[in-house]
Simulated scan of single mutants.
Amino acid sequence: MSTAGDGKQGLAKTLMPVPDPHPDVFDTQWPLRVADVDREGRLKFDAATRHIQDIGTDQLREMGYEETHPLWIVRRTMIDMVEPIVFKDILRLRRWCSGTSNRWCEMRVRIEGRRGGLVESEAFWININRETQGPARISDDFIEGLRRTTDENRLRWKPYLKGGSREDAASVHRYPVRVSDIDIFDHMNNSVYWGVIEEYLNTRPDLMTAPLRVTIEHDLPVALGDDLEIIRHEYPAGSTDKFGAELADRGVTTLTYVVGDETKAVAAIFPL
């Protein structure tokens, strides 16, 4: 089963279609609750990210690898808000593997509302060794199960984004790190980075009128007490091809998450 799609890669990559029906696609449902939505009742990006994390844990448990492969970190998450899912709907979530290597994999999640709405995502997950805190080999039997939904078995890490500088930024502002942002790994949880996205989108309601793709790549963790700043750059349509030729015809916003001179993460936002 191929992940190639129409061949687009990088930020403009084509996400693998859901292989449905397929016995190795994990399929579950739960309600969309009040903490998941914004003032207009739309499923938020940070809430969608929590759902993506939660279904990953549920699938790991269902497959029987929760004890042997308990620690994973996400290096990149790409989310397409294709059509809003609204409050009080029932979410159907499907998760499957779209690419593997010995120590990491890409996992697709599709979130659909029973009454309409669609969110697509793909995340690059790295298996972590508990003792060394470095990448660890995924067991052969686990890999075999993951590969049942993809023929991409030589997955490599290639960054799509590079942090922006303060010198030519459209804005720079502080983003306080709260105790409630810190997770079991003693780092700022992945979903909090997506809260920054929601803050930005609140200033750009025009972006929410069309399908939207947001990608975040993580370089280094953010810890409690860090003086986190968000550096914003705006690239109007036709002003650059630095994100690939496919995106030269649309505006792209980048948000660089920095602590001092260290880039912690970079996000890119653009209409599909």
Rank of each mutant, 00 (worst) to 15 (best):
A245I: 00
T77D: 01
S139L: 11
L220E: 15
E83R: 14
R154S: 11
A170C: 05
T150W: 00
V119M: 13
D6N: 15
A4W: 15
L161G: 10
A136G: 14
V25W: 04
T240K: 06
Q53M: 12
R92I: 01
I230A: 03
V196A: 08
P211S: 01
G99H: 03
L207T: 02
M208C: 13
T254I: 13
A248G: 09
I79S: 06
F243Y: 05
G238N: 06
D227M: 03
R156L: 11
E229P: 03
A170G: 03
V109C: 11
W125A: 10
D219P: 04
I111W: 00
W157T: 09
E217I: 12
A47D: 07
M81Q: 15
T254H: 14
R110V: 13
E234N: 11
S180W: 00
I138L: 15
P84L: 01
H69Q: 10
E120M: 07
G134P: 06
K44P: 07
P21D: 02
W104Q: 12
D151T: 15
S101G: 06
E67F: 12
L207I: 02
D186Q: 11
E131Y: 06
L272A: 10
Y257A: 14
D151P: 02
D141Q: 12
N202D: 15
A48H: 03
V266L: 12
Y200T: 07
H69W: 01
F270H: 13
E199C: 05
D219I: 13
L15M: 07
V214W: 01
P271N: 14
S101K: 04
V86W: 06
D241G: 05
G145H: 13
I184D: 07
T132Q: 04
V177A: 06
L161W: 06
D183Q: 01
R42F: 06
V214A: 09
P221E: 06
W30Q: 04
L93T: 04
N129S: 10
S239E: 08
S2Y: 00
G225K: 03
V222R: 07
K8Y: 10
V258H: 15
V172K: 02
V37C: 06
T240D: 05
G134S: 10
T28D: 00
T77N: 07
S2T: 15
R178P: 06
A12N: 13
Y200Q: 10
E144W: 04
T49L: 07
G260T: 09
D89E: 11
V109H: 00
D141T: 14
F243R: 08
G7S: 09
N102M: 01
D241T: 09
L43D: 02
V25D: 04
E67L: 14
L272S: 11
I138K: 12
L207G: 04
E234H: 13
M188K: 08
W30G: 03
A265I: 09
G134E: 11
F142W: 14
W96A: 03
I55V: 15
V82M: 06
D181H: 13
F243G: 11
I79K: 05
V266A: 13
E234G: 07
F124E: 07
R130S: 08
C97F: 00
F270R: 12
E262W: 09
F142S: 10
